[in-house]
């Protein structure tokens, strides 16, 4: 038995009949064809699947797509327009090398976006505690923290001259 859902994904309404057991992350990746959202652990521990649900960070491997019906979802593809400038957090990850393999990055960007929406100028401790639900196996987190700090310091996202401030 299927169930009709209507989800606003990155500003676009997706209407569909769906098997109720479909996880939000599979709806996003397989039905919306937005593969920026990753599945890391599939057990709600790693945060790679983090998206914004009505502006709040959630792990989309632990939400049913039917639970998102009537709500707004933002994925990593919804951050910057296709040919537009990066958002501050994306630019921050570029400036401060906040990624290596990049697997955790979409989740980090979404959790970081939620953090900066809530706290404009977070302390290092606040950054670390807000990213507690996101695991990275590469960077050792230092560069990720610096990337978020960069974004907080550059709310307009304009990059500094290469070499400056790093």
């Amino acid at each position: 038995m299927t169930f009709p859902i209507s989800v606003n994904v990155n500003g676009q309404t997706m209407e569909q009949e769906i098997d109720p057991r479909t996880l939000l992350v599979h709806f996003i990746r397989d039905d919306c064809r937005l593969t920026g959202t990753h599945v890391g652990c599939d057990t709600s521990n790693c945060g790679a699947c983090t998206v914004l649900l009505d502006g709040e960070a959630v792990k989309s491997c632990t939400v049913l797509a039917v639970q998102a019906s009537g709500h707004d979802i933002t994925t990593v593809e919804g951050l910057a327009p296709p040919d537009g400038p990066f958002t501050p957090i994306q630019e921050g990850f570029r400036q401060e090398h906040g990624l290596q393999c990049g697997y955790c990055t979409p989740g980090m960007l979404m959790a970081g976006t939620a953090l900066l929406n809530e706290i404009e100028n977070p302390t290092e401790e606040q950054i670390r505690s807000h990213l507690e639900g996101n695991l990275c196996r590469c960077t050792g987190y230092e560069m990720i923290v610096r990337s978020v700090q960069w974004a907080a310091e550059h709310p307009d996202g304009i990059p500094v001259e290469i070499g400056e401030g790093s």
């Binding site: 960070a57 959630v58 507690e132 639900g133």
Partner: peptide
């Protein structure tokens, strides 16, 4: 848990 868990 973590912020994502507390949001749900």
């Amino acid at each position: 848990g973590d912020p994502q868990v507390r949001n749900r």
